[in-house]
Design a protein around this nucleic acid. Structure first.
Length: 225
DNA sequence: ACCCAGGTGGCCC
DNA sequence: GGGCCACATGGG
């Protein structure tokens, strides 16, 4: 019986291999992707990002200077484009006013401070903030998403509310950091683990018949019910 | 014609 | 403090 998160990571890694997340050319692109992918299929985000690149405005200055209605039209394929245009504008205006348009100045500080600040920006919740911290800022924060919650509900984890974002994040961080002492290695593991959970969910967690191929079939409660 | 996707915030009780 | 709901597009 396996009920240790590091073992689950190892099972997923041996089965699926390296995922190399986050797919982006630079920090700013990670942040834009994190906002655009809110409750949206990544395929649609790719289209929106490609359109921003075509117009040469996928940069802090670019998003800052483009007309908001123009921005809405460009990110249209990623859905919720009215609020997402507002959220992108919010973020870059904040960086403009408080950090001289310098992302490094913003991200190279104490993790908890950045996290609090990100969460105070309208349109950035737990998952978006933590994706930015981990994948754009290289901070040791574990990203929890709907798939992670679903996985937790199906695994034999004790004493934990699987709908509570912070509880799950703290559990993963506590257990994994106990196994991995080296900070850089831990960050790499967090990046891969989150990506592997997404990969697992997309591949095997939709229909029950898929479960017999799943690398976690022995411990997952889903297919047995 | 549904249902889902790498969420978030606002409103209501 | 928890349960709904709107937000929008594209693919199965």
């Amino acid at each position: 019986m396996v009920n240790n998160l590091y073992e689950i990571y190892n099972k997923l890694f041996s089965y699926f291999g390296k995922q190399n997340w986050w797919p982006a050319e630079n920090r700013f692109e990670v942040i834009v992707g994190a906002i655009l992918t809110q409750n949206t299929a990544w395929k649609n985000v790719e289209k929106a990002i490609a359109r921003l690149k075509e117009k040469n405005i996928l940069s802090l200055e670019g998003i800052l200077s483009i007309d908001k209605n123009m921005l809405k039209q460009l990110i249209r394929p990623s859905g919720f484009y009215n609020q997402k245009a507002d959220r992108l504008k919010h973020f870059v205006e904040y960086m403009d006013k408080k950090y001289k348009r310098n992302l490094d100045l913003f991200l190279n500080r104490n993790t908890e401070e950045i996290r609090r600040e990100l969460l105070s920006i309208n349109g950035i919740g737990f998952e978006t903030a933590d994706s930015i911290l981990l994948y754009a800022g290289d901070h040791p924060i574990f990203v929890v998403d709907a798939y992670t919650k679903r996985l937790c509900k199906r695994l034999p984890l004790r004493n934990i509310d699987c709908d509570n974002y912070e509880e799950i994040r703290e559990k993963f961080e506590k257990e994994l950091s106990r196994e991995i002492g080296n900070r850089e290695k831990l960050i790499r593991l967090y990046k891969e683990f989150h990506a592997l959970i997404v990969k697992l969910a997309k591949t095997y967690c939709k229909k029950k018949p898929e479960c017999k191929e799943c690398p976690l079939k022995e411990i997952c409660s889903f297919w047995r019910v």
